[in-house]
Design a protein around this nucleic acid. Structure first.
Lengths: 243, 243
DNA sequence: TGTCAACTGTCAGCGGCTGACATTAGCGTA
DNA sequence: TACGCTAATGTCAGCCGCTGACAGTTGACA
């Protein structure tokens, strides 16, 4: 996986804020959004498998064929917004100053991405609908499977990105993957906790992940630039005073 | 997930060695095996998506409907043998003496399960076909997704099992899940390495996993019975002299 | 205004999967 | 050995996700 600037499955899925000039482009965008909203609304209301494509396209008043021209599959719609969020995070990580350590950079990327993530979502669907969508994914076996596979791909990309930052070889040095695994592991746990809980606000999710990341940071932070612990096939957390 | 003695998706999928008495039962078993072999053979030879159910059922000379009476889905056949192996491992872990520590028990379960696993596979399909099947799963996106979800479920079950052994609450104490995550993480890595390599023998896989587990053990082993480190949301490996 | 290209609709069809119902074939018993 | 019972299988019709091919429509732009 390469994680270029456009990892999107779709071709020209525009990232919200851009206002397309022509009438044609605007119409297109409207159709895409309408399909997305209608799909997510029904998925979350009556269940993913209980919703047919025909149902969605009938409501939006387009043909079924048109749906598949915008989204490669039924699953694809379900993950459209999730993907936007992921891309925002990757972008935020990419612009982190090289001076920051790996864990520090990832942590800061998450923190700094929150605002723009919120706006990005809001520009396409109500944030609250995104929340429901996330929950639905986690509780629908077929989607959970896809989610896990996607996450694996994302982790691979992140590992590569971190390795590049530090001038390391992902396959030779285990630390990038370990760091990413630990990081995403925490994110995944917070996501699940938040999904199960009552408070479904974005703020809660943000606070939760920040709090958990605070626990993880001290255990894993270490200056990778020092010639370090190569070949150790095991995560080797190093405790150190917070700061 | 509960992981009772019969986690199998199918209803009465018998674990090989048992010799059914009647002609009827024997025929049934033969059909099931024939479908399984034919499916895996074609999946591995020409690809999963490139193989249709009709193709399989035509070769075995049963109706398509019959296939779905034996296997719940196309995916189900692909994972049938994998599931047998997983169950063997769980069973092996379940009978480990309570005196053994968690990591010790899992390690020994794997080691002791190897023989019976080999026999179990052999009694249904050639071991070499199992190897190819595993590779195919890892390299087929749709199957990889399912595999990851299944693994997540398995891990949940293992965590519960370990927690029970140690008299802990899975949700209150993070150590069971952490230990399982680390353990299965290693197993997963070895599985991938082996899948990519040239040497496809069961022995190599066994040696590989033993070697990697040797690295992990010392880093995580700790007597859980001592009132320990509750509430630490992070893996807290404790180094100690091998023994 | 007319041409071109983008976008959409229609239709036919494949493959996974299911329910309903008819048919076949082991099994135990008279 | 014949017979009824029922498990196992086959047949058929149909839903749903998804795709290719082709035709129709509608913005864009000279």
């Amino acid at each position: 996986m390469t994680l270029g600037p456009d990892t999107a499955a779709g071709q020209d899925r525009m990232s919200a804020a851009e206002q397309p000039s022509g009438l044609r482009a605007r119409k297109k965008q409207r159709t895409r959004d309408a399909l997305l909203r209608e799909a997510l609304e029904r998925f979350t209301a009556q269940g993913y498998e209980q919703t047919t494509i025909d149902e969605i396209t009938d409501a939006v008043e387009v043909s079924q064929r048109t749906f598949f021209r915008y989204y490669a599959s039924k699953e694809d719609v379900a993950f459209a917004v999730v993907e936007m969020v992921e891309n925002k995070f990757i972008e935020a990580l990419r612009v982190r100053p090289a001076a920051e350590g790996p864990m520090e950079a990832m942590r800061n990327a998450v923190t700094s991405a929150w605002t723009s993530v919120g706006e990005t979502i809001q520009s396409v669907i109500p944030v609250e609908l995104y929340m429901r969508t996330y929950r639905m994914i986690e509780s629908t076996p077929a989607l959970l499977a896809v989610h896990l596979r996607r996450s694996a791909g994302l982790e691979e990309g992140l590992s590569q990105l971190l390795a590049d930052r530090e001038g390391l070889d992902v396959d030779a040095d285990p630390r990038p993957r370990v760091a990413v695994a630990a990081f995403t592991g925490v994110m995944r746990v917070t996501g699940q906790l938040w999904g199960k809980g009552q408070d479904t606000s974005l703020e809660t999710l943000r606070d939760l992940s920040e709090r958990y990341l605070d626990h993880l940071g001290p255990a894993l932070a270490e200056d990778w630039r020092s010639a370090g612990a190569r070949g150790a096939p095991t995560a080797r957390p190093v405790r150190r005073t917070r700061g």
